[in-house]
Design a protein around this nucleic acid. Sequence first.
DNA 1: TATGAATGAGAATTCATTCAT
DNA 2: TATGAATGAATTCTCATTCAT
Lengths: 196, 196, 196, 196
Amino acid sequence: MNHPPKKQALLEAAIELFAKDGFWQTTTASIAQEAGVATGTLFTYFPTKNDLIDELYLTIKREALAELQREPKLQGSFEAVFKEIHTRLLKWGSANPKKFLLMLQLRQGNQVSQRIHETIEDDWKEGYEWIKLGQQEGKLASFPTNLLLSIIHGHLEAVIQHNIQHNLSEKEVAEVATISSEILWRYLSPQSKSPQ
Amino acid sequence: MNHPPKKQALLEAAIELFAKDGFWQTTTASIAQEAGVATGTLFTYFPTKNDLIDELYLTIKREALAELQREPKLQGSFEAVFKEIHTRLLKWGSANPKKFLLMLQLRQGNQVSQRIHETIEDDWKEGYEWIKLGQQEGKLASFPTNLLLSIIHGHLEAVIQHNIQHNLSEKEVAEVATISSEILWRYLSPQSKSPQ
Amino acid sequence: MNHPPKKQALLEAAIELFAKDGFWQTTTASIAQEAGVATGTLFTYFPTKNDLIDELYLTIKREALAELQREPKLQGSFEAVFKEIHTRLLKWGSANPKKFLLMLQLRQGNQVSQRIHETIEDDWKEGYEWIKLGQQEGKLASFPTNLLLSIIHGHLEAVIQHNIQHNLSEKEVAEVATISSEILWRYLSPQSKSPQ
Amino acid sequence: MNHPPKKQALLEAAIELFAKDGFWQTTTASIAQEAGVATGTLFTYFPTKNDLIDELYLTIKREALAELQREPKLQGSFEAVFKEIHTRLLKWGSANPKKFLLMLQLRQGNQVSQRIHETIEDDWKEGYEWIKLGQQEGKLASFPTNLLLSIIHGHLEAVIQHNIQHNLSEKEVAEVATISSEILWRYLSPQSKSPQ
DNA sequence: TATGAATGAGAATTCATTCAT
DNA sequence: TATGAATGAATTCTCATTCAT
């Protein structure tokens, strides 16, 4: 976010190459080359290749989070805010396919250290609490919060991956976002609203 | 499924180790050792490490598919069949966490060859057609079939991962399956059922 | 002593190169090359470069020890045995300059692991006990056994280094050995023998 | 001896670290850090790491030599001077274990350049001549001067190492020095004194 | 002089794969 | 088929040294 230029270049090169070839097929030498620095320079900023991963993952996760904190502020009814969050994340993921897919890859591959997972959990704690509150106030279906989050996450991932795969334009993404948030909301509304 | 015993042992050892340490961190030597065979023997059955992956992925995918083909046959209304499919897959994934997580890992990591992806697509074609037919007959929401499938997939993944993470008992899994299939069905029913 | 041929070749190559260039200036690649095996082969026998050192040091120390155990058996008066031990070690070191100097280098450089030092101490324990007994029986000067051993060791080292540096012939070494063992014996005899 | 403060700090840091970890395991960066200066600063004073070694070795050797040149002046009979030299060196080594052991390490490891060895030989030439003269005048045993020096050296080393290892107090060192110089003198006196 | 980020040649070690038995 | 020692290309990481400031 405010890295020294060479560090920034390394992170960007890593995103590019990891997304293209996968983490383990990408050598530190090629990252350095892509970033236009010497091989040793990488290790000035990241003591090991795994530290690079960790920082990369954290950086991307925080970039996604930043989407929710930027102007205009999230406001309005619970439903409105919920849909807006969904929309912003969906748009961010669709617009940043490399970062998004890399995030999935790193998570699935167990490459990210526990420490980083905890840091991120911490970052997103506010959101978690907001969802929980929504449930307590009867705005959201009452199944286990973790399951609820898993489902939201799974839904977002599925739709974003679909958008990326089909290479949708910004306008199309916006349309999908509207439909998708509508569906998700209906789907996660409290049971009372469900048809008998 | 009907492999020579050493081949079978190798596949099982690979599942164990890939799931634990990840594909790239697992050496062919360690797989052979875990399987109780010599290092060279692995290459008698799988010309390269990547061929092992391919076969493993295919085997697992077909094992999941077999769940849908086993007795009792799927039958009844479209809704009943849809829910049963969902339930069987969810139970299979929850009962086979290693295989399930490995499947995700291999898919995200771009490790599986194109050829295998095509083979699998072929295997599942029947299901794809069945979903499409359901849409045409107005049994399912009418958004793009691929998106629909992505969402189903994402939902299943989310719930299974949740089950695995929380280590649910078979009974609990059955309960979650009921709720989950109910929700998913409601969610993917044609728009007409949606609240105005 | 009874190593697989490639392991033996590696140990010999290592002696050659370590003695010539020093431990840290010698690369594992060059050792493998000198031994006529592939770079990886070294690591089949020695997990790390340090393990190679350890084994090398142990092997050399035991080779020296073997000099004392070979035929003809050590026998006769305490004095005769003492001188014979001194002579055999002195001859061995003078005849094996590379091994001898390497031994010194490894010991001084703190390269050998504690475990190996303990193993060696164990190997030589019998000798230690024999010296101690000699002291108790009044055959040797009564200062601290450890100091006594240090002095013997220091003397041997000094004379061997001198022989090596001056490149003495076998015959000359034999002469020096006689003088040297005479001096050392006189020097370490009990105080009573000393001039007032 | 009269170095700029940063240079002095670097030399001291180097002694500390070389003695602890060995020359090759110690990085120039760590020396600089220990000395509290920037990495680049080391190279202002020592063009290469090897130059640092050379200067260090020379400095230590001269420090030992200085022990013999300080007040009170060496005087009295040949025997008295011989014993006093021995005692001073023994005390210096025992009191400066890091420097002493480092000296041994550097010598054995072939780390010091030829140029420096020659310089030092020059420094100690006077002592060499004095010993030789002693031999000619029948004060010392008549075997080759070089061998004689080796033996003296070996003896000193053995005893100092023993003192260091057993962590003797200053008083104990003084006692050992007396015994040790007595022994050494007896040992190196001309043959006539030896028992028949 | 002093700094410390940057360099890049070099080194230890790994591991998929081969092949003689 | 099965074995496992041997191979050697490839990779991560180190560190003495440089140089712009």
